[in-house]
């Protein structure tokens, strides 16, 4: 398990400007916590692009196929009905009436599948204890999580971070 210290910033732009210089001096930045999404931050600290939209597309496609199968099986195969002069003996002749259901089913699966994936992957679930290095991180502070395995270098690292715009440097929960 790596050990970490936390640099507190009070301006997101200052934090972002200092990521590169800190990196070039060998500082290993694990994560940045912020009260709101910051454009380009994921790219800057090297997160891969999220593939959650692709998941959503796949869930949607499954929902679409599920509804096609459902309408075909229930209305055409299992119990064909002649409603309003439109006998259900061939799928293609009745499909306009099934489009709304196919659409809703696709949307239902795409949305709920994606959100569930998001909750599970991000470990945001009821009952999870939050990782809160500093209580102000959801208010107006930006927290940089920095690796510090060697306790002897902690003072140097702290000074370096303070020199690079950090307001204070602290350990978890202190």
């Amino acid at each position: 398990m790596s050990k970490y210290i936390f640099a507190v910033y009070n301006d997101e732009d200052v934090l972002m400007q200092n990521i590169k210089p800190l990196r070039s001096q060998g500082v290993r930045i694990k994560e940045v916590f912020s009260p709101f999404p910051i454009h380009g931050m994921d790219h800057l600290i090297g997160h891969k692009r999220t593939r959650i939209a692709i998941c959503s597309f796949i869930y949607g496609a499954i929902g679409c196929l599920l509804a096609i199968w459902m309408t075909q099986y229930m209305m055409i195969a299992d119990w064909p009905m002649d409603i309003g002069g439109k006998p259900s003996f061939a799928y293609y002749k009745n499909v306009p009436a099934f489009v709304p259901i196919i659409f809703e089913s696709a949307v239902f699966c795409a949305a709920h599948g994606m959100v569930l994936t998001f909750y599970l992957r991000s470990k945001t679930l009821p009952g999870v204890t939050a990782f809160v290095p500093d209580k102000r991180m959801t208010d107006d502070r930006f927290i940089m999580q920095v690796e510090c395995n060697d306790a002897s270098k902690k003072a140097d690292l702290t000074n370096l971070l303070l020199k690079h715009g950090a307001e204070e440097v602290k350990e978890y929960g202190k």
Binding site: P37, I38, M41, D42, I52, V115, G127, V132
Partner: peptide
């Protein structure tokens, strides 16, 4: 739900908002 506001979570959050 144990939300922390890490940049990885924000990245997913923004993508989810956009797709939703």
């Amino acid at each position: 739900f144990g939300w922390t506001g890490s940049s990885k979570n924000w990245q997913r959050f923004e993508e989810v908002s956009l797709v939703l």
